[in-house]
């Protein structure tokens, strides 16, 4: 249905994306085990960055509390697999539901706040949720818990097979997020999101339902973040409130990625994730220097190109990887 109404350019993008997915899906046969793990991590950051960008870049909801949904997704997976004996694969949609539910509870409160107040509000909400998990002894309290062996085995019997399965799940989520967000931007809702990104006052006066658009996006992003949380902790096999609700890992780094890549453009989040992983892998051995370089890098980008690396490229070459421009 959608494909029929799409211009050739966009059909080509979908075909290329599918091709890339197929090539990456075959990676376990030609990439080392350590690199498979790294790639898996790359996909999870990619998905988180694309989602955070959708929220902050398009709807203007600057959340510094997305770790809440990674954490809730991760914990929901642990609870339903370890405590209720539900299949790990079924736990992913359950994690989505749990994260969406939590977002639905907090959204009406948070949406009363604007700008910086909203940002702080999301952070406080995430901390509150995190503290709740500290207080549950059945889940190991502050120390956390490990995924029981029988649950781990039910993902796949051999270790190699399990790593491959988790890799495919990560790949599915990472590229699935790009597919979904791209399709969304090509839809009528996407038009509203781009209008909202550029000018909220005008968008409201032209009949766009701002509150509803923001609310739906907030819930959808939370649900997808919850799914990623579940899969991240498949790989980690251990969860604690500190790792599950880590502000640094699941939000600050993601903000860094989106800001250097280019906020408000789908390609920005992708480019940012690639640049971040290159920086991280080349500088990881230098300890503190690595963080200093990241910081300096972010400052330089913010001062000289507020639209990020992708924005700079786009301005210069007038090309886009994932075109969303409507033709008259």
């Amino acid at each position: 249905m959608i494909l029929k109404s799409l211009p050739k350019k966009q059909i080509r993008v979908f075909l290329v994306l599918t091709l890339i997915t197929i090539i990456l899906a075959s990676a376990p046969w030609w990439v080392s085990r350590a690199d498979i793990r790294l790639l898996g991590e790359f996909y999870s950051f990619l998905a988180l960055a694309v989602l955070w960008n959708l929220l902050a870049g398009y709807t203007g909801l600057i959340s510094v509390g997305q770790q809440a949904f990674v954490g809730v997704g991760g914990y929901a997976m642990f609870i339903v697999t370890a405590k209720l004996g539900i299949s790990p694969f079924l736990s992913v949609p359950i994690s989505m539901l749990a994260a969406a539910l939590i977002a639905g509870v907090f959204a009406p409160l948070l949406f009363r706040l604007n700008g910086a107040h909203f940002a702080i509000g999301t952070w406080v909400a995430a901390e509150t949720i995190s503290l709740c998990f500290f207080m549950v002894p059945e889940l190991g309290g502050g120390a956390g818990m490990s995924l029981p062996t029988d649950v781990v085995k039910s993902i796949a019997s051999s270790r190699a097979m399990r790593e491959m399965t988790i890799y495919w799940l990560m790949l599915g989520l990472g590229l699935g997020t790009i597919f979904a967000v791209y399709a969304l931007l090509l839809s009528k809702t996407g038009l509203a999101l781009m209008a909202l990104r550029d000018n909220e006052i005008a968008a409201a006066s032209l009949g766009i339902n701002i509150w509803k658009t923001k609310f739906v996006m907030y819930i959808a992003v939370a649900a997808a973040t919850g799914a990623i949380g579940a899969v991240i902790f498949f790989q980690k096999l251990r969860i604690s409130p500190e790792s599950a609700f880590s502000l640094n890992d699941w939000t600050i780094i993601i903000i860094f990625i989106v800001v250097i890549g280019g906020i408000g453009k789908l390609e920005g989040a992708i480019v940012g994730t690639i640049v971040f992983f290159i920086l991280r892998e080349t500088l990881a051995d230098y300890g503190v220097v690595y963080l200093i370089v990241l910081g300096v890098f972010a400052i330089i980008i913010m001062m000289f190109s507020r639209k990020g690396i992708w924005g700079m490229f786009e301005e210069k070459f007038k090309r886009s990887l994932l075109p969303v421009t409507r033709e008259p």
């Binding site: 109404s5 038009l191 781009m194 990104r197 000018n199 009949g207 409507r326």
Partner: peptide, 26 residues
């Protein structure tokens, strides 16, 4: 004037038609 500066002129008007009149993009 409050344009959607990142969108083209056509897209600006498309937003107005699609959401102002509550009709599909097509």
């Amino acid at each position: 004037p409050q344009p959607f500066s990142g969108l083209t002129t056509y897209e600006n008007v498309l937003v107005a038609a699609a959401f102002g009149q509550e009709i599909s993009e097509a």
